[in-house]
Amino acid sequence: MAMQTATAGRKARWALLDIIVVVYALVPVLWIASLSLKSKDTIADGNFIPREWTLQNYKDIFATTEFIRPLFNSIGIALIATFVAVILGMMAAYAVARLEFPGKKLLVGVSLLIAMFPQISLVTPLFNIERELGLFDTWPGLILPYITFALPLAIYTLSSFFREIPWELEKAAKMDGATPAQAFRKVIAPLAAPGVFTTAILVFILCWNDFLFAISLTSTEASRTVPAALSFFTGASQFEDPTGTISAAAVVITIPIILFVLFFQRRIVAGLTSGAVKG
């Protein structure tokens, strides 16, 4: 009996803690959503639940290219950067996890260094370099730095996944008559899939959320991404506060991330490699 009340008490404590965490994380998101649904007159009333519901803010942002074009840029740039970073990261991570080669420690060290490098210190040099090379305000101009900063993340995440795949499976594939490429494609890659999807999500979020490079290395709608474009939002007149439309845009750009995670979550099945080897 005492045991039961003890566990009940524990459960209650954990439940309380969980609720606090969830509320802490979700309230700002819901607040933004609530703001985006309020009409211009009630936006500053401080109510959590809008008194006057409207979709006008959403209509407004989709009525101008000011939002649609950056949205298109964001999706394109983030997808391309993610794709390239994951492919390169897979190769590098495989080498780091499986091969012994001179300079391996150095490679891992340098990639860690890149990940920790303060990005702000690179903005001015990058700005000058890109202007000289004609990359400024173009898609590649953002894709390249994104790949650079996403690669360490991709290599670290992927190499830990690769390390979990039993080495003997690859030997077995070789003994079964596979070339190294076949062994990788038919045995290692399918088993690494959950890791690849996890990495893809992380890298995509990293690129999607970036503001610093997006604001510094773009100047027009040709390549400006949504986080940067949001800061250029104006109301109908300069005396009008664009809070409602910014909120609506913020809600809209959260949706791809949510979709991305939900879509790939199914693929991230824990314990896919169980049964391969004993133990």
Binding site: K174, L272, T273, S274
Partner: peptide
């Protein structure tokens, strides 16, 4: 010769079955 050209089969201690 690479393993695939030797035409030899191997049974591993851990079995090394393809889990997928």
């Amino acid at each position: 010769k690479s393993p695939k050209d030797r035409d030899i089969a191997m049974v591993f201690q851990s079995y090394a079955l393809y889990p997928h």
